[in-house]
Design a binder for these strands. Structure first.
Lengths: 196, 196
DNA sequence: CACAGATCCTAACACTCGTTAGTTTTTTTT
DNA sequence: AAAAAAAACTAACGAGTGTTAGGATCTGTG
């Protein structure tokens, strides 16, 4: 049982996941081969299997790490007793910053989840549905409390999450707009649209 | 020279493109094989090559058809002398309806363009950059004319286009929200966010 | 130093991929 | 009905896929 040196193991595993993430984002999960990944790690393809079990496991690790991070941040927001608009602003900022700071991982979780093997795929989609439902409930509560404008909550959630996921495109651009400007203006846009 | 029966030819070609589009959307360009496409068309894989030149050609046809449609709609809006807010609403509605009516093609154009071979890839990206610049110019003009709120035009464009492209997720859902409700609410959200 | 275990390598397997060649069948034209 | 054209088929190519087996090498502990 290799428990003692698990620190070194997980370190190498993390390197593999990090390099793989970059390639998955650049070329897509299907087009990035194990040999591609191995090359950027500086090793032969077969050697990767001393640290991971399969290509799919890398994708799983990325997708569920991101999902868990979003969920635990939402837990926190839900526990707080802020007004609805403040809650939504916090959530929006969390999403924007995740997109700015962990671009690679969030992008993969957004775009490559369909390559997850079952039962992870169903699991992931259930988590996502549940997450959006919770966001939608926050908005619905805000409408009933007359704190935000009357808008179909599902559509508002869809609009917000999709808008933010588009930051991917900024990330690949020549960045004439700074990250701060981007965050400030997108928050402004998305929050103004919720106000009464 | 086969020009006379070009109608029957392009008809079969269109069938292939349509079936391929469905598969590209479901499984991604890379994961959808020529043999998959052939099966849904009801033919052997090799027979496809009597009507198309390559797998990539199918992707090109889809991406550029969509791009051209958006561009020509934007031409029309630019020629009109409506106020900025009205222009933006028209563009937003065009995008939403394209997403509703031509889901499969628009989705592919949004998500699978990276698999375009050169020089089509550069071409496509140039067209896209130019398109976004034109949208951004409309917003900038609106700000200078004091018709809409002071917001970074690039960020507004990014937000609008990304939000709409998220309708993809609605399309795959159980649709407890009707298309009309979706369009009305998304327009409301995105336009309110632009108003002063 | 010697042993153990972790990590690497080479080689290969069993597929699948897009595409081409060559032939046969179906459809259209004369 | 004969000839020509279009479209289908079978078979195969070369390349690339994720993954496994088995052995070599490196690393750290006793």
């Amino acid at each position: 049982m290799s428990k003692i040196q698990s620190k070194k193991n997980s370190t190498k595993k993390e390197i593999i996941i990090e390099k793989a993430a970059k390639l998955f984002r650049e070329k897509g999960f299907g087009a990035a081969s194990m040999r591609d990944i191995a090359e950027t790690v500086g090793v032969e393809a077969a050697s990767l299997y001393n640290h991971i079990q399969s290509k799919a496991e890398i994708l799983q690790a990325i997708c569920f790490k991101v999902a868990n991070e979003f969920i635990s941040q939402l837990d926190e927001v839900e526990r707080s007793n802020e007004p609805t608009l403040k809650k939504m602003e916090t959530i929006i900022r969390v999403h924007i910053r995740m997109m700015l700071d962990q671009y690679e991982h969030v992008y993969i979780s957004d775009h490559e989840w369909r390559h997850l093997p079952e039962p992870y795929l169903s699991n992931f989609l259930n988590q996502r549905r549940s997450y959006r439902k919770r966001l939608s409930d926050i908005i619905e509560e805000g409408i009933q409390k007359n704190e935000i404008k009357n808008i179909e909550p599902y559509v508002a959630v869809l609009t917000i999450l999709s808008a933010i996921s588009g930051i991917e495109s900024w990330h690949r651009s020549r960045k004439t707009t700074s990250a701060e400007t981007l965050e400030a203006n997108m928050v402004k846009y998305l929050i103004e649209g919720l106000k009464k």
